[in-house]
Design a binder for these strands. Structure first.
Lengths: 365, 365
DNA sequence: ACGTTTTGCCAAAACGTCTTGGCACCGAGT
DNA sequence: ACTCGGTGCCAAGACGTTTTGGCAAAACGT
């Protein structure tokens, strides 16, 4: 029963609670923190808790942090938040996990870094501000050389592994995701599955191509017959699809399914397909990669694609970070090798069984 | 000239600097902070600065914050970072301005709130953590009722005005942006300019429609003739465009330009237009709104649209916040009414002059 | 009744910085 | 020689917590 919410002016401190409960600040601290190896009668506990509640006491985190030597804040450094719409999901995951762990998430965006060396500026900024840990999320690398600043503080990598193998990291398992798409297409009855690859040299390019090949090989199909590379944008998708579709005019030679390196290329492919009078998915199944908002859902028909585990990477990263922070002594028992996170297929309407060949097989003959 | 970077173990404090410079901590604090009303010889100043540099001293922000009563951290609360790809730009702007102001930006994402009342949970979390100020960014409101928690702390709103008019806010000037698009279309020679409106009731819906009408009226055109509303997604854009294009079969009755409520609707409109054998921009100019990544640039042809000032809103908000924080006494002299930020047109390739009428006018007759 | 343990609580010392008030010195004016 | 106003510096006390070490009083054993 609160005595009416008179606005608590001039922040109420632990002393006020102590006074209100008729005990010392020591005792208040003890009961409010459940300090172990300390004894308090139930009566006092209740009185203290009641007083704290009544006064709306919240400990000053700065003072507590100073004493405790921990700020309760972790930092997330993301390379060019702007250029990658994905970053949002990483932040979201990290933020939600952070509040779950009772941490505050601060962010700094570093400029997009073409070098393998991580820019130490962001790390330093967090170090200066007593961050308890740091997460560095990269976009275009699969292996980085963290600055030595990162070795003196609990750290986790997202999107790239540590070349030295000392910092744990989380990465999407693009290869397995790509392979699973091919598996799915094969299961749907497709045999002539084309891949519109990306021509830009980033880890994702390699991983997805590898996955495509894995899938094709596993199904006993030729992994080289229907592959065309182009710029990883809508324009490139249009070009690659055009090349892939025009290899042979006959419907019995043409691929029946087209796996695009990413959703933007799929967007271009949609146009190339439409221009040829074909419809998706009846004449041609199409899949993308990234589950990029808002393309995948806005295309017609909505695009079946594979989602990147951005939210999970963010969340897992702070969870891992919290683990490292709490078990300071064992800091290092955590795996230095990256943990791969699954890329799940998200089914929409761009995949169907291949239409039966226009010219009947020998069987009918 | 550093003596080689031996890794600074066991954080170096102000005492270490004092010892190294042969002065008291008081003096170190004074010279490092340029404390006014305090005197130090140039000689000592230099020695202290050198020592600090040498040792790589960085003051402990927690201790400083405790003493100074300021955390150096501002909080950004954004509603559903996930659902709105725009949020990223807001965060980016806020973050960059924050480091410019030597502040740390922490973020919390609140759940999407259909009510006009702001969820106080996020604000409380920042209050508890001694944030120096709070920014609340909403998406689907134009007016909100901030919780009283926000009145006790420097605060700024993004995307919505304060119903009580006590908290400064920054909003996109959607109406002017929409009007400017119409102006541009008119200047390009269009007279039959259609508007594919949104049927969902959010402030943007009203603002953009109002802007369209402003523009049409200003050009002496009928603002009601070519308006169709549908769901603000690609599907809705397809439907609205279809309706708008089919009003009359004759090319001399049909709109020559189509202004879509947003880029997603424009995406649907592209398909409706293509299906009718028309090409953009030769037969039909199309513009969108939002400059939504990656649609606008990925469409073919790339879409002319208007950009929302997300980055600016983020940046201006923390700048304003900083102003409020620093001039605490005058807190309140800042405008309680929202400041509208311009939405600039971004020109791409989906607009051209209308093609000359197929059947010549009476003049030739 | 007298040690001995257990129980319940607390005073005081951190944590690392900023800030208040003042102390010693020096040169100049009388 | 004695005061006086600067100048250059510093000791000590905040800021609001947590934690260490310990002290009374109560409970217990004999």
């Amino acid at each position: 029963m609160k005595t009416g919410n008179r606005v608590a002016r001039k922040h109420v401190g632990i002393r006020d609670v102590a006074a209100a409960a008729g005990v010392s600040v020591t005792t208040v601290s003890h009961v409010l923190n459940d300090t172990p190896h300390t004894r308090t009668s139930d009566d006092t506990r209740n009185r203290v808790k009641a007083a704290a509640e009544e006064l709306g006491y919240q400990p000053n985190r700065l003072a507590r942090g100073l004493r405790i030597q921990a700020s309760g804040m972790v930092g997330l450094i993301t390379e060019e938040i702007a250029t990658t719409p994905h970053a949002g999901k990483i932040i979201l995951g990290a933020q939600e996990e952070a509040t779950r762990q009772n941490l505050m998430l601060a962010i700094i965006n570093s400029s997009l870094n073409p070098a393998v060396e991580i820019d130490p500026a962001g790390v330093r900024a967090f170090l200066d501000r007593q961050a308890d840990g740091v997460i560095y999320a990269t976009v275009y690398h699969d292996e980085v050389n963290p600055p030595e600043e990162m070795l003196g503080i609990p750290a986790v990598l997202i999107g790239a592994r540590d070349a030295r193998g000392e910092i744990p990291s989380f990465m999407p398992d693009e290869r397995a995701g790509a392979a699973s798409i091919v598996d799915m297409l094969v299961a749907a009855g497709h045999r002539r599955i084309a891949f519109a690859a990306s021509s830009v040299d980033v880890p994702a390019t390699r991983g997805r191509l590898l996955g495509y090949r894995d899938g094709m090989l596993a199904a006993g199909l030729d992994p080289d017959q229907f592959v065309a590379a182009a710029e990883g944008e809508a324009k490139g998708g249009y070009e690659a699809a055009a090349r892939l579709l025009d290899v042979a005019v006959g419907a019995d030679e043409r691929p029946t399914a087209l796996f695009c390196y990413n959703d933007r290329m799929a967007m271009g492919a949609y146009r190339a397909i439409a221009e040829r009078g074909l419809t998706i998915p009846a004449d041609m199944s199409v899949v993308g990669f990234d589950d990029q908002d808002p393309i995948a859902a806005s295309l017609f028909p909505p695009l079946t694609t594979v989602a990147l585990p951005h939210y999970e990477m963010g969340a897992r990263a702070v969870a891992e970070l919290m683990g490292i922070i709490e078990s300071r002594p064992e800091h290092g028992l955590l795996p230095g090798h990256p943990t791969l996170l699954a890329c799940p297929i998200v089914h929409r309407d761009s995949v169907a069984a291949p239409s039966p060949d226009k010219h009947p097989r020998a069987s009918t003959h």
